Amino acid sequence: MFHQRLIIIDCIISSIFSHGDLSPFGSCHGNLQFTYESFLMLNEITLTVIAIRRQLEADLNLLEEETTRRLEESIRKNVEEKLNSEEVQSEIERRIKEGQKKLFDNVVAQLHKEKEAALAEERRKEAQARKEREELDMMLKENSRRVEESQRREALEQQKKDEERFCELELIKRQKEEVAWRKKLEVEEDHANQKNLLAILCTVLMKSDCMRIEYEVSSLKLLPLAPTSNVSSYKKLVK
């Protein structure tokens, strides 16, 4: 209703402005001449129409606000009534249960997923630790092998040095034994030579004594017999 009135007023205002000049000295379609009183009357009518239009717009706004408020109130009451109804309460409870079940299922799925991820991470860590232990064992074995190889080389070198030292000592020992044997041989030769020389000397002395005795005997044969005292003196002399 208010909209229809506004449309009628808009048509009147449009008709007034479209059929003539509103100035007191203007013309309408070039023929109709307005007087000053006509202008005042027309202006008053226009202002009245505009005021009516504004009042109608204000009433329309109030009506729209009231309608909106009542509609909102009606919707709110309707919603409250429906929310308080058993059917809606049952639906709410059903949806709450479904939401709780869905949330529980999501939590269980998330926990299962986290558990699987934790198990996978634990398996990964165990595999990594096992790999590190294997690498460490391999490194220790390699180090042990290198140490054993180094010790074996050192032992072989030491054995070689010991053998060389033993050979040197054996050579020195043989040389010393040979020198001692030669010295002993020389001593024995000297001793034998001394024995031979002594034997020769004894032989020479014995021969010399025999010759001397023979000479003395032969000399005695030539001498005259002497008294017994002279014979004993002669024996002492011979001795």
Rank of each mutant, 00 (worst) to 15 (best):
H3S: 10
H3F: 12
Q4I: 08
Q4C: 02
R5I: 14
R5T: 08
L6C: 02
I7S: 15
I7E: 15
D10A: 07
I12S: 08
I13K: 05
S15M: 08
S15T: 03
S18I: 09
D21K: 02
D21G: 01
L22M: 15
P24C: 00
F25C: 06
G30P: 03
G30M: 11
G30E: 14
N31M: 08
N31I: 11
L32P: 00
Y36L: 09
E37C: 00
S38W: 03
L40I: 06
M41H: 13
N43Y: 03
N43T: 04
N43W: 06
E44Y: 02
T46Y: 11
T48M: 11
V49H: 12
I52S: 09
Q55I: 10
D59C: 05
L60C: 02
L63W: 11
T68E: 13
R70L: 15
E72W: 10
S74Y: 06
N78F: 11
Q89N: 01
Q89C: 01
Q89Y: 00
S90G: 07
E93K: 05
R94T: 06
R94M: 07
R94Y: 04
G99F: 07
Q100W: 11
L103R: 13
F104V: 08
D105S: 06
N106Y: 04
N106R: 10
L111C: 03
K113R: 03
A117Q: 10
A117E: 10
A117C: 03
A118S: 04
E121L: 02
R124N: 07
K125T: 12
E126L: 14
E126I: 14
E126N: 07
A127K: 11
A127V: 03
R133Q: 09
R133I: 10
L136Q: 14
D137A: 12
M138P: 00
L140G: 00
L140F: 12
K141S: 06
K141C: 03
K141Q: 12
E142D: 10
E142Y: 05
N143D: 14
R146D: 15
S150T: 01
Q151Y: 08
Q151D: 11
R152V: 11
R153P: 00
E154P: 00
L156E: 14
Q158N: 13
K160P: 01
R165P: 06
F166V: 08
F166Y: 09
C167W: 12
E168Q: 13
E168C: 05
L169E: 13
L169D: 08
L171G: 01
K173W: 03
Q175S: 07
K184D: 12
L185T: 05
E186Y: 15
E186I: 14
V187P: 00
D190I: 08
A192E: 14
A192G: 00
Q194K: 09
N196L: 12
N196V: 06
L197M: 09
L201M: 02
K207D: 13
S208R: 05
S208D: 05
S208Q: 08
D209N: 07
C210K: 04
M211E: 13
I213C: 04
I213S: 05
E214W: 12
E216G: 02
E216N: 07
S219Y: 05
L222M: 08
L222V: 01
P224H: 12
P224N: 13
L225W: 14
P227I: 15
N230F: 12
S233E: 09
S233V: 09
K235L: 12
K236A: 15
L237D: 12
V238P: 02
K239N: 15
